[in-house]
């Protein structure tokens, strides 16, 4: 696409305990971010007895921030220190490359923050898998994701697109959806999309959509392949 606005931007996503989101945004403002969007999210604990007692949903904040590419690594490292992402159960931060951006006029980046360009590209083999499923299928979908050995995921409540053919009191109806975000290695990401699309019969209309985005950098994964969140 020959769009003139090839954006030197990255999208940084941070998943932390509920309530910390605002702190993450204001901290990041001093490190090159222009602001952020905070979404109520839920972590899913994998312990069996928690699941049996239905105590497995833990409130989280998912923070999305658009930053200039040259600030991306610095911000991730700063966040990692600030939030102690190396420790278990603190959170995770990752960046996704953004191909185009429109409407950045409203973003005012603090010009005083100078960011050195990153030293070298980290070879990260992680993918962020986004599974948009019907709210009803969410629990089963998380189970399926776990069955591949991936740590499950963080989910957010969302609404599916309007069904114009079905009006409720003269309004198009929206269906309740869940977006499950899972960070996994490339091979595992492929496996997840395969398993989930078979399970959800994803090619039938209304059953959902799954897509994977290569992760540029990630902080908060303790060991190879193991997520701490």
């Amino acid at each position: 696409m020959d769009t003139p606005e090839i954006a030197p931007f990255s999208l940084i996503a941070v998943i932390v305990q509920r309530g910390i989101g605002s702190k993450v945004v204001s901290f990041s403002k001093d490190h090159g971010s222009s602001g952020g969007t905070i979404i109520h999210a839920y972590g899913t604990a994998s312990r069996r007895w928690l699941k049996a007692l239905r105590l497995d949903n833990i409130s989280r904040d998912l923070v999305l921030m658009l930053v200039r590419d040259n600030c991306e690594e610095k911000l991730l490292d700063a966040l990692s220190d600030y939030l102690h992402l190396g420790d278990s159960n603190t959170g995770i931060a990752f960046s996704l490359p953004v191909s185009h951006v429109l409407g950045t006029k409203k973003l005012s980046f603090d010009t005083e923050v100078t960011c050195a360009p990153p030293d070298a590209d980290e070879a990260v083999d992680y993918y962020a898998v986004f599974s948009i499923v019907r709210d009803l299928d969410r629990e089963d979908a998380v189970e399926k994701i776990r069955s591949t050995g991936a740590p499950g995921g963080t989910y957010i409540d969302a609404f599916g697109s309007a069904d114009m053919s079905r009006l409720i009191f003269n309004m198009p109806s929206f269906s309740e959806k869940s977006i499950i975000v899972t960070i996994a290695s490339h091979a595992k990401a492929r496996e997840i999309t395969e398993v989930l699309s078979r399970f959800l019969k994803i090619d039938e209309p209304g059953n959902g959509i799954i897509f994977a985005v290569p992760v540029h950098r990630v902080r908060g994964i303790a060991k190879e392949g193991e997520l701490v969140i």
């Binding site: 509920r18 604990a45 312990r47 928690l50 007692l53 105590l55 497995d56 949903n57 833990i58 409130s59």
Partner: peptide, 8 residues
Amino acid sequence: MGALNEKL
């Protein structure tokens, strides 16, 4: 304790 801990 997951969610119960949070509430406590």
